[in-house]
Amino acid sequence: MSTPRTVLVVGGGAAGNAVTILLRRAGLDVDLIEAEADWNATAGSGITLQGNALRVLRELGVWQRVKESGFGFGSVGITAPDGTVLHVVRDLRTGGDDLPATVGMQRPHLQQILIDAVRAGGASVRLGTRAESLEQDGDGVCVRFTDGTEGRYDLVIAADGLGSTTRAAIGITDRPEPTGMAIWRTAAPRPAGVVRTDLAYGGPAYIAGYCPTSDTTLYAYVVEASRDRASIPPETYADEMRRLASAYGGFWPEITEHITDPAKVNYTWFDRLLVEGAWHRGRVVLVGDAAHCCPPTLAQGAALSLEDAWVLARMLTEAGTWDDALFQAYYERRVHRVRAVVEASVQIGQWQLDGVRDADVPGLMGRTMTMLRDLP
């Protein structure tokens, strides 16, 4: 059997963009569809990229732009609610010693860098388009799109996120489950003294933290118990986040004075998902948040998605035949690493929800991050 050459990627986020870039570089024909008409509309405020994410971004050929756009640092500070620094921990360089431990970035900037690389690679991109139906046989997938067109592909890669409609369409019944926590996020100007992530535990929220995202910007976040989202009118988002953040000292007063526009504040529940058994049905394969997600307590969500894309692309381009055995091998190569991160991320939050004061958070974080130094 000849190697299949046509791929449809559903979803233009980090995982979808990354796998598109890599497969096009290998010479495969790739169509990418994205449901949003504005490809960068939902990119969000900021993102923390640890070394294992940077390692993949380097493989994508975008590391120099990421480095220039973001803010690199190598430690995290633990503070009291009043801003007193209690401890500073060196971050592990999970991408190797030749990359920073961590880079903070504005999410829209990262998304634009990946968009530019997708377009430069020559993939066919259609925005504002969804896969309406999928019909498989032994050799491929026939896809009908919402614009009335159809296409046939040797493989469909579902990178359409946490609420993946593709996952449901192929009969995978796993769904994200809320963990009981939620996060307020916003972008703000960076005070000159903010040169790393600082995390305050205690006060009116479980965590109050910030991460520098450029020489002039940061993103700030406050984690609390999840509320009924319907009970929080969007026009009050800035007021709600400012109310929680105003209890914290140090750099927080300077940050808080910029939390004024509710349209720039995001409120999101923490979810957990890990699809078990296989991440494919026939010739439709899941990557990224469509297959797994975890709370950002270890800042590994985007990194795991990028790793999925890198691993899957390598396996596809190195294999002579695409079949169930290959797709199952992809799952087995990824699931143990992903499971460790998902479970650790959820556990850290659960300890806080349960009020466990002697939890070994540093030990769990250290073991998990050490594991991530290995190549995926």
Score class of each variant (00 low, 15 high):
Thr368Ile: 05
Glu59Met: 08
Arg5Ile: 07
Arg167Gln: 13
Val265Cys: 02
Leu199Glu: 03
Leu353Val: 06
Asp31Asn: 08
Glu343Lys: 05
Gly366Val: 06
Arg55His: 09
Val194Thr: 09
Gln350Ile: 00
Met371Tyr: 00
Val143Trp: 05
Ala120Asn: 01
Val222Trp: 07
Tyr210Pro: 01
Val85Ile: 13
Gly11Ser: 09
Gly250Pro: 02
Ala187Thr: 15
Leu372Thr: 11
Arg55Leu: 10
Thr297Ala: 08
Gly44Pro: 06
Glu34Ile: 14
Phe71Thr: 02
Glu68His: 06
Cys293Arg: 06
Val287Trp: 01
Ala340Arg: 14
Trp322Val: 09
Ile170Ala: 02
Pro81Ile: 09
Ala247Gln: 03
Ala278Leu: 08
Asp308Cys: 10
Thr149Met: 03
Thr165Asp: 07
Val285Ile: 10
Ala313Arg: 06
Asp308Leu: 07
Leu99Asp: 07
Thr236Met: 03
Ala26Tyr: 01
Trp39Pro: 01
Leu60Lys: 03
Asn52Asp: 03
Asp239His: 11
Glu34Gln: 13
Tyr331Phe: 13
Ala319Asn: 00
Arg190Gly: 13
Leu364Tyr: 02
Val342Leu: 04
Asp261Arg: 12
Ile170Pro: 03
Leu286Trp: 13
Pro295Arg: 00
Thr20Ser: 13
Ile207Leu: 12
Val10His: 05
Arg367Gly: 10
Arg119Pro: 00
Phe270Ser: 05
Val103Thr: 06
Thr317Met: 03
Ala53Pro: 12
Ser75Leu: 03
Val284Met: 08
His280Ile: 02
Glu59Gln: 11
Leu49Pro: 05
Gly249Phe: 02
Phe145Cys: 07
Trp252Tyr: 11
Trp39Arg: 14
Gly61Asp: 03
Pro296Phe: 07
Glu257Ser: 10
Asp116Tyr: 00
Val265Asn: 03
Gln50Lys: 14
Asp354Tyr: 04
Ala188Phe: 04
Ala313Gln: 00
Phe71His: 11
Trp184Ile: 01
Gly161His: 13
Leu306Ser: 06
Asp154Arg: 05
Met105Val: 15
Gln50Gly: 00
Glu254Gln: 12
Thr42Asp: 13
Thr129Pro: 01
